[in-house]
Amino acid sequence: MSYSAEQVQILTERCEQFRGSKAPEGYPDSLALCIVDSVQSTMVRYPTVEKVVSNYRAYRREQGGDPNTDSAVDLAATFAQLNGPEAWAARIGNGNRTSTHKGAPLKAYAIEAEANGMIDVGVVTAQDLRSAAEDADSLALVKKAWLNVPGQGSGVTWHYVQMLAGIPGIKPDRMIIRFVAKALDRPVKTVSPAFCVELLTAVAGELSMTASELDHAIWNYQRGQ
């Protein structure tokens, strides 16, 4: 489903109210926090994500580390120190799982798997991820590793981890999809994540905003509805 010029116009008019909005900085120096936040963010209210991020920061500071500059290696090491995902979830994370399917693994499991997956493809820092984004083949390799982790196949957290690392983009979660569906007067089930990414990226250009700025503005708007 590709977007049309008419759809760009409709969304641009709908998003005019967001012109000039800014997005949070994310974690440009901490791939560890990018991974934790992105994986924890799906299917929950954001305060629960903030709690896990806060717990991770506190734990790392107790260990003498700096969470604001943590790499994927630093993140993976916390799982070894705490003896695995279940203990990590009890100490830092929570009981949230990667999906609603019976037997779905803890998000802590996915966080550890994503940290190790990044390391395996040579992406250790947030700067490494930004550098990979400059080359389509390199980014495709990282994307494949990310999507292979249970519960991450939709691509929502993949878009989000890049945004948190400072790569402009759209996180096509359910709030973004609902916003686009309502603006276009379409059933939600007919609006795909990929369509939202392409359409809203074009709209951001029309508004002289980055995709991340538009994404955050829409997310904030939807949260208040």
Rank of each mutant, 00 (worst) to 15 (best):
33 L>N: 12
138 S>M: 15
193 P>I: 03
70 D>I: 13
126 A>V: 09
31 L>S: 03
82 L>N: 10
32 A>P: 08
24 P>I: 01
159 H>R: 09
48 T>N: 13
196 C>V: 02
191 V>R: 10
151 G>T: 08
153 G>R: 07
14 R>T: 11
70 D>P: 07
115 A>G: 01
127 Q>C: 03
86 E>S: 15
26 G>N: 10
114 E>H: 08
121 V>P: 04
134 E>F: 02
78 T>W: 11
205 G>R: 13
129 L>F: 03
85 P>K: 12
156 V>N: 09
56 Y>C: 09
68 N>C: 12
4 S>A: 09
36 V>A: 10
137 D>V: 15
153 G>E: 05
167 I>K: 03
209 M>D: 04
31 L>M: 13
83 N>S: 15
159 H>W: 01
31 L>N: 06
38 S>H: 12
99 S>F: 01
189 K>S: 03
9 Q>H: 06
79 F>H: 12
21 S>D: 02
204 A>F: 09
198 E>R: 05
126 A>M: 12
187 P>N: 07
184 L>I: 01
121 V>Y: 08
127 Q>G: 09
64 G>D: 02
118 M>L: 06
100 T>F: 03
35 I>H: 02
208 S>D: 12
77 A>Y: 00
176 I>N: 10
214 L>Q: 06
167 I>M: 02
164 L>D: 06
33 L>H: 10
8 V>N: 13
122 G>K: 08
136 A>S: 14
199 L>P: 05
143 K>N: 14
49 V>I: 10
99 S>V: 01
129 L>S: 03
33 L>I: 09
